[in-house]
């Protein structure tokens, strides 16, 4: 089992990336790990480049910023331009509803936004992505993400977000069967 994960979740303000980072962190703490979650954002509450970073480690986390990412999620064109080169060595997850298909073995495209719309909750694309990423990379256990969701949201919102999470986890299962990560 890997000791340390550095994760980048990049897109634009309003896509729920910081919240995704927080949930990842809370799930990791449930697993007894150390976590640092940071973000970089502009002055707009909606739109503009926004990025959440999460480091998960069994040891003390000294420097708080991601320096060599192990996992990347990109949800906008700008984020893809910034991080596509990383796919040479680490998995880069992206949303095929929002972005063109990328060629290369470390690119993992899923229609997160389209799937969320199908669920009837367009705002849960980030949870689907968390489900896919956690199941495929082993960052945290999906059931701990579900626990973190239950703690953060009221009953109805928790149900919707859990539904999206497990949809993502199921999707990852198919990807694995197809010879993914």
């Amino acid at each position: 089992m890997k000791q340390r994960f550095e994760v980048i979740l990049a897109g634009s303000g309003g896509q729920g990336l910081v919240l995704s980072g927080i949930l990842l962190g809370e799930a990791a703490i449930l697993e007894g790990k150390n976590v640092v979650q940071t973000q970089s954002y502009g002055i707009a509450s909606r739109g503009g480049f926004s990025q959440a970073e999460v480091i998960i480690d069994r040891e003390e986390i000294i420097f708080q910023q991601v320096q060599s990412p192990d996992v990347v999620l990109v949800l906008t064109r700008e984020a893809m331009e910034k991080y596509s080169l990383l796919a040479a060595s680490v998995p880069v997850f992206y949303d095929t509803t929002l972005l063109d298909r990328q060629a290369g073995e470390n690119f993992y495209g899923f229609p997160f936004t389209a799937m969320a719309s199908e669920l009837g909750h367009a705002g849960t694309a980030n949870m689907i992505a968390l489900g896919v990423i956690s199941a495929l990379t082993g960052l945290v256990k999906p059931e701990n993400l579900a626990k973190a969701i239950d703690r953060r949201f009221s009953a109805e919102a928790a149900r919707r977000n859990r539904e999206a999470l497990w949809l993502g986890v199921g999707m990852a299962g198919k990807e694995r069967d197809n010879g993914g990560i």
């Binding site: 150390n34 976590v35 640092v36 979650q37 940071t38 986390i61 708080q64």
Partner: peptide
């Protein structure tokens, strides 16, 4: 701003 917005254990 770093420590203020950072989340950790």
């Amino acid at each position: 701003e770093i420590v203020a917005h950072m989340r950790e254990n």
